[in-house]
């Protein structure tokens, strides 16, 4: 499908320099990347400034569930309403379910600290299992967790975000995939 190469990425608007040691491969095979690290280590910035633009420019359909999911749900409700779907009384889970069910071409799932809002995260993987091949999951824990390991995960790869230095306001972060 596509690949995000390793290298140094400078995000000036976020005062971040990301050193990606190993690239990210998005092939047709199932894969789940679990991204973890301390607060402020650039996980969300990686998703929003590197991954999502790369998915967009490569024409890959994806589902992105952001960190501020409570705000995002307003946009989901609006989107589904303009698609003619009745979601006026739908709660959070129902909104997500309807959205996922109406996104049959999505191949990548990106979730940012989803485990902060839902104690049980398996439902999202069950709902997306039929179509999603690659998952990028940011956990709000600063250590890897087995919560995102499941039967249908495919290859699970833990990705550590580690602050390696700071020059004034600019932080340098190393992104490294841990060997299983």
């Amino acid at each position: 499908m596509m690949r995000i190469d390793g290298g140094t990425y400078t995000l000036s608007d976020r005062n971040l320099v990301l050193d990606i040691e190993d690239g990210f491969e998005l092939s047709g095979q199932r894969c789940r990347y679990i991204l973890f690290g301390a607060n402020g280590s650039g996980k969300t910035s990686f998703l929003e400034k590197i991954l999502i633009p790369a998915l967009d420019s490569n024409g890959v359909d994806f589902l992105y569930i952001g960190q501020d999911i409570r705000n995002q749900l307003y946009t989901l409700r609006a989107l589904l309403a303009t698609m003619g779907l009745s979601v006026i009384n739908a709660d959070e889970r129902e909104l997500l379910r309807v959205w996922i069910a109406n996104s049959p071409t999505a191949r990548v799932l990106v979730m940012d600290e989803f485990d902060k809002f839902f104690s049980d995260v398996d439902f999202i993987f069950q709902w997306t299992n039929a179509v999603i091949q690659t998952c990028f999951v940011v956990t709000h824990h600063d250590q890897p967790t087995s919560r995102f390991d499941s039967e249908n995960a495919g290859r699970v790869c833990r990705v550590r975000f580690e602050l390696t230095g700071q020059d004034g306001e600019v932080k340098r972060v190393r992104i490294r995939q841990e060997k299983p």
Partner: peptide
Amino acid sequence: TLKRFSWYLNTYSG
């Protein structure tokens, strides 16, 4: 919040 909403809407393939 308007800017954030706009960002989310840009990500929806639907």
